[in-house]
Design a protein around this nucleic acid. Structure first.
Lengths: 222, 222
DNA sequence: TATCCCGATTCGGTATCCCAAGAAAGGCCC
DNA sequence: GGGCCTTTCTTGGGATACCGAATCGGGATA
């Protein structure tokens, strides 16, 4: 694999894992040392990440994209029509094998699983549902939206009951798709997205002080 | 403005205007001569355009993104839930001034207007409706979708009645938004998107032979 | 004549160099 | 001592040189 893709993936991972703080400045020369590559592939990776909205320009500088709390509501508003449509299409198009695969993914993430697992599966579930729609544009849009959401979800304080609640909702959605109930699936998806948004926003607002203390330029950081 | 952005914009324009054929190969060295810049800004522009799906890799080579006829239906399927949601939100959030601005845009494009005008306004209308939703993610998604659609729309044979038909639909949509009728607006948007898709696909299928003759690798070009 | 092999050429990938603009630091003047 | 100006240094933007891989052609051979 080309160096540029390696750097892109690694840098992406560092950003999504909050290894690099939101709003943090990146200099091409620092990255040069960090990844032991020249500026050429690094610049390409940065331009690429800019297209994914994970990195942004601040004047002539590069910064890690800040997390804007206000965007979280907009993101949910964006996902709702798309994912309900995806669920409806999934009812018509998904095979039992596809559905079983997703169920397996949920099963593999039991309550004892590490935080990373829950985080990953909780994201992938929505992407996989989108995939069942068979529409590549929906898949891409949902993938992007979940990526944007990803870092904020690390900051969320997951209680055991809220996790269980979310997983139940996932299973219910999958059940409606399996039994070919588009209206119910769509309703359930919409509710789930709203619930998730509320849980997330409530958690972040309660913990706002804590976030600041941890050095996150959470609000309108430049 | 930086050279990279200039090159990006020019190349983008050349692609969208079909000045560069879908599927056509691009070499960095040719672009170097064409734009009188070194490979550095050119590579950055290409990576950027790749993110917009206007340029693609074919092995180690760069090619102008081909037009896949099959994607047009998927694109409409993608737009429908998003734009209906946008229309609903617009009912709640749009100011009369916003709406008047869009109406003015439609008015400025009379039947005598050049083809480019119809093309541009017909695209911008949908983006502007999305903007009324106040949701930046919806705006971005619709902008991208209309960009993807843009080249195929050049290939469409627009008859005078079909143009008028589309414009009437636009006005009806705007009217429902103005009068705060979300359900009617949403229904009208959905119908309009489907109608437009049908018109486009019918026109392209009839003209398929002609497209090939004009050198477009329209179907699954590599 | 068809095929295979080898060399020349072309291409993207990477490293490096130069430049101008901007920020920071230091010194100078008031 | 504080504010302003100058100098210096850092940074991103662009140009260029070099490399290895892939491709294209031509010539030799069966």
């Amino acid at each position: 694999m080309s160096q540029m893709l390696q750097i892109h993936d690694q840098l992406r991972e560092m950003i999504l894992s909050l290894d690099l703080g939101p709003g943090e400045r990146l200099t091409e020369r620092w990255l040069e040392g960090r990844f032991e590559g020249s500026r050429t592939p690094i610049r390409a990776a940065l331009v690429r990440l800019e297209g994914e909205d994970l990195v942004r320009r601040d004047g002539r500088n590069w910064i890690v994209a800040p997390i804007e709390l206000g965007e979280l509501a907009a993101l949910s508003e964006f996902r709702e029509p798309l994912e309900t449509a995806a669920a409806r299409l999934a009812c018509a198009r998904a095979s039992e094998a596809d559905i079983a695969g997703i169920e397996e993914m949920l099963d593999a993430c039991q309550s004892g699983a590490p935080r990373e697992e829950w985080h990953r599966v909780g994201t992938d579930f929505h992407v996989e549902i989108a995939r069942l729609s068979g529409n590549p544009f929906i898949v891409k849009a949902i993938t992007g939206a979940m990526t944007q959401l990803s870092r904020a979800r690390w900051l969320e304080v997951w209680t055991e009951p809220s996790r269980e609640r979310a997983w139940e909702e996932h299973r219910r959605i999958l059940g409606f798709i399996r039994n070919n109930k588009p209206d119910e699936a769509a309703r359930e998806v919409a509710e789930h997205i709203r619930d998730t948004r509320d849980r997330l926003l409530r958690s972040l607002n309660e913990d706002r002080r804590g976030l600041r203390a941890r050095g996150f330029a959470v609000i309108g950081a430049r």
